[in-house]
Computed example of a mutant assay.
Amino acid sequence: MVAPIPRDTINSQATVHAANAVVMVPPIDFKFNVETSADNEFQKSLTLSDAEIRTKALNEFYGMVELLRSHGVNVTVMDYSSEQGETPDAVFPNNWFSTSITGDIYLFPMACENRRREVRSDTLVKALRESGFKAPKVHSLGDLNAPKAFLESTGVMIMDHVNSTVYAALSVRCDRDLLQQYVNRAGFKEVIYFDTRMSSGSPVYHTNVMMAVGEGFAVICDEIIEEFERRRVLNSLQKTKDVISISEEQMGQFCGNILQLQNEKGERLIAMSLSAYNAFTLEQKRVLRQHGKLVPIDVSTIETIGGGSVRCMLGENFLPR
């Protein structure tokens, strides 16, 4: 089912930027993931049992599904069992696949062993076909089972489809060579990668917690980008975007982990967590509202324990029907 990406395959990216469909995976095995906590400083433990955590997480998940559907977004819920081992972070599917309007799905090598169990292309394709989408072509990037380098999809790559540009913060989870390989093969014109350093001294683990790009706006915690690279990133964004700079404290409230979508009527929405919404200033929210209706969602349990928020829970679906 899964074939390596042919070296001569170049899929030109369409100018459609805001997806009107998403894939979500319920947190049936959700709990604090010790493996990912090694470099994810956003994860925090709670004094709750695993059963209590999963109940809260499932309630937040299905509340989010219902809310997005009520706003006219097509949501495919991809469910699977734990027969192949627990998948505590399966609620964050955007880290292992991406889709394109050309009908392709790309699968990516994950850094943590227990996250590699999430990569189930047959289950994903079946769920998409049952939701009315054409059977996609499935490609893999690198070795998915025993990778020596990692590239965690739209967790580490922020895609500006309008300008055919990919932004990426380099880290253990974002290998520069794999990044360039994907950009070349998927038909993007430019990649802008950079180094980050948080106040702890560590790089940010995923670009999508510090940065989001919409059709006409960008949210970025530029203060954690190494100074000599910061201007290059901002200059690129400011050519076509309203740029909203957030602080590291706001990043910690997941203000960078937001996603612009569109509904069945073509109306723009910006999905974000309730904590992110509350952390944005009034002026920042005013600018964001020029680019879509703000949709705050309470996922406090998931984002506290999982170290990822609303954007991480959404696998954009650009596939044709």
Score class of each variant (00 low, 15 high):
169 A>P: 03
70 S>I: 09
279 A>R: 00
59 N>S: 14
54 R>T: 14
219 V>N: 08
129 R>A: 09
30 F>Y: 12
53 I>C: 11
129 R>V: 15
235 N>C: 04
288 L>R: 02
311 R>D: 07
271 A>C: 10
248 E>D: 05
305 I>W: 08
144 L>W: 10
282 L>E: 15
281 T>E: 09
271 A>E: 03
67 L>W: 04
20 N>K: 13
62 Y>M: 12
239 K>W: 03
176 R>F: 02
236 S>V: 03
13 Q>N: 07
316 E>H: 08
310 V>C: 06
248 E>L: 09
227 E>S: 13
82 S>P: 05
99 T>Y: 08
308 G>Q: 01
317 N>M: 03
104 D>L: 04
176 R>T: 06
21 A>K: 01
236 S>N: 13
321 R>H: 12
229 E>M: 12
7 R>A: 13
121 S>R: 10
210 M>T: 04
318 F>T: 07
138 V>L: 13
5 I>D: 09
161 H>G: 03
79 D>S: 14
212 A>W: 04
296 P>F: 06
81 S>I: 03
88 P>D: 07
192 I>D: 07
144 L>P: 09
38 A>H: 12
19 A>D: 05
61 F>I: 04
86 E>C: 06
208 N>R: 11
167 Y>P: 11
28 I>V: 14
209 V>H: 07
145 N>D: 13
